[in-house]
Simulated scan of single mutants.
Amino acid sequence: MKKKHLLATIAWAFAGSAAFASPADDVMAPDIEKGEREFEVAYGTDRSDAGKYESALALSFGAGISERWATELGVEFERARGEHMKYGGIEWENRLGLIIDEDAPVALSLLVGFERPRERAEGWSSTLGLLSETTVGRFLVNANLLVERNWDVDAEDEGDEGEEEDEDHDPGAADRADDDAEARTTLGYQWQVLYRHSHRIYYGVQGMGEMGQWDDWAERDEQEHRIGPALFGRIKHAGGQRLNYTAGLLFGVTDATPDYTLRLKLEYEL
């Protein structure tokens, strides 16, 4: 697995926010390097033919605490069409190494993340995932499965009129509606296939998406699926510091997905 160490480090970078929907999300890698410190900035924008777009800017700091634990704390800013960039939320992400042997055919880590949006009515969200990575010749393959759960969501403003009618027939309807909102658990995925062109430049294709409720997937056109090319690069300084950069352009393949997502990211390693 030493052959893929450079690309794995680049692919980690911001590693995406814990929430699936951010335009700044990236494919996460399972690698953990003890003692490594990283400052990262990621920017992404979604656009559609209807003129709707959303942008996100994410800033974070990460560190390899031990050989099996890496942690990262980040803050995200967001902007919708016609609005200014504003604070969107804070997130804390941890990767716990399950298979870390460099000679093993597959690297595997457990992702545990938490996010608190700026809008308190949106409650909290947590993400639990399996991050995997393997190499085939000069190709590196990542495949991740993610489960995101929202809780403490304020559902008072959602469907008040309908709830009042339901309460006439069933006094517990409103409480059950609140429970449903708090208990939403969403299934998502990420993958990428990258080719090591040289020690400094890598390119390939990425994909990510969300199927909806984990035990009751949404209709095909209501799911979100994106796919597109990505480029990775690295500049190494004499003092041992490294500057990694990533650029990706993902295209939506369903009606519920933005037509395209452009992502840019810089990572400074110490």
Rank of each mutant, 00 (worst) to 15 (best):
M1E: 09
K2W: 14
K4C: 14
H5C: 14
L6N: 13
I10Y: 05
W12N: 11
A13H: 07
A13N: 08
F14N: 15
S17M: 14
V27R: 01
E36G: 11
R37V: 15
E40W: 09
V41Y: 04
A42F: 01
S48C: 03
S48E: 04
A50P: 09
K52V: 12
E54N: 13
S55H: 05
L57M: 03
A58N: 14
F61K: 01
W69I: 07
W69A: 02
A70M: 08
E76L: 13
F77Y: 01
R79C: 07
E83A: 02
M85P: 01
G88E: 01
G89P: 03
E91P: 06
E91Y: 10
W92N: 09
L96V: 00
L96A: 04
L98Q: 00
I99E: 06
I99S: 06
D101M: 02
E102V: 12
P105M: 01
L111T: 05
V112T: 08
G113I: 01
F114Y: 11
R118P: 11
E119P: 10
E122S: 08
G123L: 04
G123F: 00
S126Q: 14
S126R: 11
T127M: 13
S132M: 01
T134G: 02
G137K: 01
F139G: 05
F139C: 00
V141M: 06
N144D: 00
L145R: 04
R149L: 02
R149C: 02
N150K: 15
D152Y: 06
D152K: 10
V153E: 06
D154R: 05
D154W: 03
E163N: 15
E164K: 12
D166Y: 09
E167S: 09
E167N: 07
D168L: 14
H169G: 14
D175S: 11
A177M: 08
D179V: 14
D179L: 15
A181C: 05
E182F: 05
L187Y: 02
G188R: 03
Q190H: 05
Q192C: 06
R200I: 13
R200M: 13
I201K: 08
Y202Q: 10
Y203R: 07
Q206H: 07
G207L: 07
M208N: 14
G209C: 04
E210F: 11
M211V: 11
G212C: 04
Q213S: 14
W214P: 04
D215S: 09
D215C: 08
D216V: 09
A218W: 08
E219C: 08
E219R: 13
E222S: 12
E224V: 15
H225S: 05
R226Q: 09
I227V: 07
G228W: 06
G228C: 02
G233Q: 00
H237D: 11
A238T: 07
G240S: 03
Q241F: 12
R242E: 14
G248T: 07
L249M: 10
L249D: 10
V253M: 05
T254H: 01
D255N: 09
A256V: 00
D259Y: 05
D259P: 01
D259A: 03
Y260K: 13
T261P: 03
T261W: 03
L262G: 07
R263D: 00
K265Y: 10
K265V: 11
